[in-house]
């Protein structure tokens, strides 16, 4: 790892980091601040929920728990918005962290310094996952503080931890995918559309899979299928799912490195 490059990468990405952090913070605060009003309408909403076909409810991550507790309400939005939003940020940063140098043709400067491509790659990945971890950590702390303020009664921190740990695995997985796709498309490409499509797309594939038995098979192609981000107390953290997703992410990164080491830097 190259310290000089690592620090520069953190600095270069700080602006984007704070823009996205403020979006996700704003959204987290919005969700937590509307809960007290929604819970006041609890009975009416539960009645409303009964009107909604259960398949749609499941697809949207809503169930009878949604309105009953702050954590239930938060979990409805955590999967579909917060995890997806953070993943879009980290995957698009991952897609740009190496390819941007090629697009802007600064790779010529970087790769004529005395560093190997392998060092450049892993240093950038280290900076990327540092940003991911800091982002995830700050959002988790904010959500934890917010939930303890708006929640009435006991709070199940075990479920909160399981939900967030699952979310983190998903975010890491999408981050690795972001790095990989940037290696296989021309550096002129803007990856944001691809990243948004992939994260939201796989979320909704999983949602469709969960809505009926007949569509269950679709879920197997979505990483969301393997991680538990609802508050269902019957579910536990899927260790095997986490190990497989992390292993796949590492393999994707190694494939990306091999591609990076082989490519010619156009003049």
């Amino acid at each position: 790892m190259n310290k000089n490059l690592y620090i520069k990468e953190l600095k270069r990405n700080r602006k984007n980091f704070f823009v996205w952090l403020s979006i996700v913070f704003g959204f987290t605060l919005l969700v937590l601040s509307i809960f007290p009003y929604m819970s006041g309408m609890g009975e009416g909403l539960t009645a409303l929920m009964e009107q909604i076909p259960p398949e749609i409810g499941k697809a949207m991550g809503m169930d009878e728990q949604t309105w009953s507790s702050a954590l239930g309400f938060y979990s409805t939005y955590y999967g579909v918005y917060i995890v997806v939003l953070i993943s879009i940020y980290t995957a698009s940063t991952g897609a740009g962290i190496i390819s941007k140098e090629e697009r802007d043709r600064t790779s010529e400067f970087l790769l004529t310094r005395p560093v190997s491509r392998k060092t450049v790659f892993w240093t950038k990945i280290a900076a990327l996952f540092s940003l991911t971890l800091i982002f995830f950590g700050l959002q988790t702390v904010l959500a934890g503080i917010g939930l303890s303020l708006v929640n009435e009664g006991t709070m199940d921190w075990g479920i909160f931890t399981r939900m967030h740990a699952s979310g983190f695995i998903l975010i890491c997985f999408f981050t690795a995918i972001g790095v990989l796709i940037s290696m296989f498309f021309t550096p002129k490409k803007n990856f944001m559309g691809m990243v948004v499509g992939l994260t939201f797309g796989t979320y909704f594939l999983n949602a469709i899979a969960k809505s009926t038995e007949a569509t269950k098979w679709i879920g197997y192609i979505s990483p969301f299928n393997y991680m538990e981000i609802t508050i269902d107390p019957h579910h536990a953290f899927n260790y095997w799912g986490a190990i497989v997703l992390i292993l796949v992410a590492i393999i994707l990164l190694i494939v990306a490195l091999k591609s990076y080491e082989k490519r010619d830097m156009a003049g």
């Binding site: 270069r12 043709r105 400067f109 004529t112 310094r113 005395p114």
Partner: peptide, 16 residues
């Protein structure tokens, strides 16, 4: 590359 100084024909540096 520790021992080389390279001056490219076209210069592309970090705009920021």
């Amino acid at each position: 590359r520790k021992k080389i100084g390279y001056l490219p024909s076209e210069v592309h540096y970090y705009d920021e």
